[in-house]
Design a protein around this nucleic acid. Structure first.
Lengths: 210, 210
DNA sequence: TATTTTCCGTTGCAAAAGCAACACATTATG
DNA sequence: CATAATGTGTTGCTTTTGCAACGGAAAATA
């Protein structure tokens, strides 16, 4: 299956789009967008890092997704079914393109490049999200904090084609991503080190097994 | 957004398809299919109930998805990234249509109805999966068994437009779906009953709050 | 219908995870 | 540069969860 997608072309075509669009800059910790029911916003992160975050009624914070340069997000990729607040928070200074749809699968009449490119690639883009989501479910269904950590590390290791890699999160955020208590996670991480499975140098993890 | 999809038409068009296809019948507990990397199988559950199940290295079983009549599944909707076995198991007698793709987003040259219908609707179908997956992630990120149960019940309640609904799982399977220990879940369910939040009559749950 | 298998419901005990608090390091910010 | 804010690392204690085991109910099967 062809999963290539030329994001650079996509973005450059965007400037020729016939639709309303906006480019905005955000400072660290600002809220980039809040997901709203029945809106179909498509956002492109041109620069920076951001997290899709949910706060539940108990005050727990969950990092649902982590976005870096060229990531696509917005309601297009997340049909909202509950009342929980979903925010995208800038983790560094960010530049973001916004674009609102009527019907994401219909081409516009003017046949602009952007729409053409988008409608051709949207299925693949969404399918890519499906892959990410399934991966995340696999992590979350692991029964122990230890297995979640190891699972996540092995994922990053595979992605980087190396037993050494940077964590894209602070440890505090990693806990929110794995949906576990931070101090319990720290304890488990310590045990992993003591068991000789993992080493940690600054923000860098080194896997020592297999 | 238009999320309607005429599954009946889809299936009837299937018979005019130009591609290899197969219709098979399964008994309860038989394995309908195993997900295989780099294959793009599309399966349609014409009748019966089935679960997508994963067994991990610790022997834990996880029910990843639950399928009922007219559900679509197969690698098309699940890009495989790990080595865990993914099986679809029949929970009752099932009738299933199988179909293997080369490139799921390309129309065939012969312009058969099935392909036309499929390529028009595939994005929506996948987007529907995305909704399901996000919902599942929301459940799994809940920190306690109690919240998982309540979250799942409230979901079924919303779907049924009623405070009373049938569980689509046995309690044993529900535990595998929520990714918790069965006996711990039973204990929590008992507490929910004692706290007057939930009633259970046979396979039927009644929500007593709000 | 008799018998086997699966599921339900329960419990004691052990292990894991959550909570709260704190000191210290590192990073932003006025 | 001083100070505030945030992140890291740790620990004692409590609560939740998992594990193992068992008896009985319900359902499937011979």
């Amino acid at each position: 299956m062809n999963t290539n997608f030329d994001i650079e072309k996509f973005i450059s075509d965007f400037s020729n789009s016939c639709q309303k669009k906006q480019k905005k800059v955000f400072n660290k910790n600002e809220v980039i967008t809040t997901y709203i029911k029945n809106r179909n916003q498509l956002c492109i992160l041109l620069d920076g890092h951001a997290d899709l975050v949910r706060y539940d009624l108990n005050g727990n914070r969950t990092i649902v997704e982590h976005f870096s340069k060229n990531a696509l997000f917005g309601e297009v990729f997340y049909t909202i079914t509950t009342n929980n607040e979903l925010l995208v928070e800038a983790k560094s200074n960010c530049t973001v393109l916004f674009y609102i749809y009527d019907d994401i699968f219909h081409k516009c009449k003017k046949n602009c490049k952007f729409h053409q490119n988008l409608s051709e690639n949207l299925p693949q883009l969404i399918l890519h999200k499906v892959t990410d989501l399934n991966m995340r479910i696999e992590l979350l269904t692991k029964r122990s904090t230890r297995d979640k950590l190891l699972g996540y590390f092995s994922l990053l290791s595979t992605r980087n084609l190396s037993k050494t890699f940077e964590l894209p999160f602070s440890l505090t955020d990693l806990a929110d991503y794995l949906s576990v208590d931070r101090s319990a996670m720290m304890r488990e991480l310590k045990l992993l080190k003591e068991d000789g499975l993992v080493e940690k140098v600054g923000n860098r993890i080194i896997l020592l097994y297999k």
